Amino acid sequence: MAAPSESSEAMIFYDIAMATPYAPNPWKSRLALNFKDIKYSTTWVHLPDIAQVRRTLGVPACRKFSDGTDFYTLPILVDPNTKSRIGDSFDIAIYLQKTYPDSGAGDLFPPQKLEFAFNNEFASLVPLSERNDIEYVDYSKFNTYVDAAFTAHVSLVVHNLPFHPATAEATKAEFVRRAGVTSWDDFQIKGEQRQKFKESFHTMLGDLGKLFLRDISGPFLLGKKASYADLIVGGWLRMMREALPKQEWEEISGWHGGIYGRLHDGLEKYAEVK
């Protein structure tokens, strides 16, 4: 299918309403939409309302908690031009590539080896997607491992997440309930515990960073050409930049020769919030 014309109806992108956008999976999709130069607008949904919005749109939950109950989250993309509704960031990327293959900067999934794996030693605060893709398998596995790797270290940022003032208390209460802790302050980590997380994070980013050293001509895995693999990592870097203390973000973005600072900055051209 050809790229949308100027007269094409704008897509609707659903993201979580926060004081500033931070959620990594919506960021992956925003970066992909902008990479493809797709016309869209953002509908902001307060976190307590996400389940109802997904039900109203007829988009089922794509993840489950360990007890089998549905985990409702965003993003969702609605394309009125094809009457499609997609409720998972990786599925959104596939949809954009297959439906609008030549739009914007081109191919989101160019062939490349994405040899990275991660074994989690920390408990996960949120469930991860379980995928069994038959297309773009290397990218799917990479997405799963990167999600696991960053989620394992999300305790570094949870206490500083920029919740929307209108729903901050309700959102914090839901986080406390899901995690089975007694209060919001239980999410604050400092001292030796924080240092342990940072050391583990440094090691993980070093392992992941080896992929970025294969082509040093640019900030991306393929040098000067961005792909969805870069957007996967970039979505998580957006969260880290927004929720880490400024000094820690500056420290982390400079680790491993500044790989991640350059990647974050290199994706800035696809980071417009529309």
Rank of each mutant, 00 (worst) to 15 (best):
Q52C: 04
V176A: 10
K246E: 15
I38S: 03
A173G: 04
M18P: 01
D230Y: 00
V176N: 00
K98G: 09
A105K: 04
F175C: 13
K246I: 11
V157Y: 01
P127Q: 11
I76N: 02
A17P: 02
T42V: 14
E174A: 14
Y260C: 11
D88V: 01
D147Q: 11
E9R: 11
K98M: 12
P245Y: 04
D102E: 15
S7E: 15
D265G: 03
K210C: 06
D107C: 07
F116D: 11
K64Y: 01
H264C: 15
I38G: 09
D91M: 07
Y136D: 10
R55G: 06
S7K: 14
D133T: 04
V273T: 14
F116T: 02
L31W: 01
V78L: 12
H153S: 13
L33Q: 05
I38H: 02
R131N: 07
R262A: 15
M239F: 07
A10G: 13
G106Y: 04
L231V: 01
K28D: 08
T171K: 06
V181I: 12
P111G: 03
N25M: 08
I50C: 12
A32C: 08
L57I: 00
Q195Y: 00
Y22F: 14
Q247A: 15
L211I: 07
S29F: 06
Q52Y: 08
P80N: 08
G209E: 08
A17W: 04
E6Q: 10
F90Y: 07
L222H: 06
D102S: 15
G257H: 05
T99C: 06
L263I: 10
M11F: 03
V273L: 13
H46A: 13
L74A: 02
Y95G: 06
A93I: 05
T167P: 10
P60I: 04
V53N: 01
S8T: 05
P75G: 09
V233D: 04
L47R: 11
W249K: 13
G223I: 02
L108W: 00
L211S: 09
S66G: 09
V59K: 08
S183R: 09
R30T: 07
P26R: 06
L244V: 04
L208I: 08
L47T: 09
G234S: 08
N143K: 07
E135F: 03
S89V: 01
E268H: 11
L156T: 07
I134D: 14
Q52T: 12
S89N: 00
V158H: 07
D185P: 06
A168G: 03
A271H: 02
N34F: 00
S129M: 10
G254Q: 13
P110F: 01
